[in-house]
Design a binder for these strands. Sequence first.
DNA 1: TTAAAGTACTTTGAATTACAAAGTAAATAT
DNA 2: ATATTTACTTTGTAATTCAAAGTACTTTAA
Lengths: 98, 98
Amino acid sequence: MSDFNYQQLDEIIHSRIRLAIMAMLVTVDEAEFTFLREKVNATDGNLSTHLKKLEESGYVAVSKSFENRKPVSRYMLTKKGRTAFEMYVERLEKLIKK
Amino acid sequence: MSDFNYQQLDEIIHSRIRLAIMAMLVTVDEAEFTFLREKVNATDGNLSTHLKKLEESGYVAVSKSFENRKPVSRYMLTKKGRTAFEMYVERLEKLIKK
DNA sequence: TTAAAGTACTTTGAATTACAAAGTAAATAT
DNA sequence: ATATTTACTTTGTAATTCAAAGTACTTTAA
């Protein structure tokens, strides 16, 4: 399969906002909703739906709890998510590197 | 602006198929419709619409002619397209590298 | 004490996008 | 003559993206 076949790029990860979320998550153990919202520069609604999609794809796991009487959602990559991201990056680099 | 801000990635280029087209086009002087269709693994209709979008964005130029009595469309990156692609790759790498 | 404002999300609806099926126009094969 | 192939383009629809509005609280102000 040619390196230029566009379908080789995981479409779940490839969305701009989800890619930014995944790229952020690989650098940390876990991240709170509000932290991601700030880093990725997303609106609440948009972030929420994309995190849900990543969850449903099994790429991200969440733990929702209350701390100081406030809801806190913590997100982290799953093993599957990490592997998928690595594969995605590998293919992406083959595509963009000459 | 944080490297994780998803909006920094050029949305015209970022689409999977258009990214593949652009990545292909930076490696060659020009490419025919049928060549791109094969390399990128796209259907005619899909390729056609995305090439048109790249054209309208000023990233790609086309020359349409007849050769051996058949229509041939040749596509090449414009200067603007090349610059935009370089910028895109730069930002993408900052995003996915650590 | 109760009303208003904030926080941390989720749901909804509308606009945009991506895609392939169908269409066009010309050439070639049967 | 008719059917098929080639090189595209147009069209219709399904999926995606996004922010506005909504929910369920908590905190602050009056």
